[in-house]
């Protein structure tokens, strides 16, 4: 089977990328590697009130709940914006633009 130019190009690219692996030593990425680890930090809630206090307490004391709140809030807001902008666009009569082609 004769490989097309594109496929040969991609395979060469992959090999080139792999060849680099043993060639360049050192470890200047240290900061980036640490970026994903657990953060040793506590929010100072002493002067907080309302929503901020709730968020700060969740962050300090219930990390799983905080993670769920962050993830679900972003998902909910994303869906809310998606649905509401569609509604607004329909009201403005721009629906045609958002329909298929």
């Amino acid at each position: 089977m004769r490989l097309s130019f594109g496929l040969r190009y991609f395979i060469s690219l992959l090999f080139l990328a792999l060849l680099v692996v043993p060639l360049i030593p050192s470890n200047i990425f240290a900061d980036d590697e640490e970026a994903g680890g657990e953060l040793k930090y506590e929010v100072n809630t002493s002067e907080m009130t309302g929503f901020n206090l709730l968020l700060g307490k969740l962050y300090n004391e219930h990390r799983i709940l905080y993670s769920l709140v962050v993830t679900l809030t972003m998902a909910f807001l994303g869906m809310l914006v998606a649905v509401s902008t569609d509604y607004v666009l329909r009201l403005l009569g721009i629906r045609k633009i958002s329909k298929g082609h």
């Binding site: 690219l13 050192s26 470890n27 200047i28 990425f29």
Partner: peptide, 19 residues
Amino acid sequence: SGNVGPVVRWVYMIFLFGL
């Protein structure tokens, strides 16, 4: 093996420019 940092960045560069 202590190689990770620049290697990742080199591969990243090759892919960005290559693609």
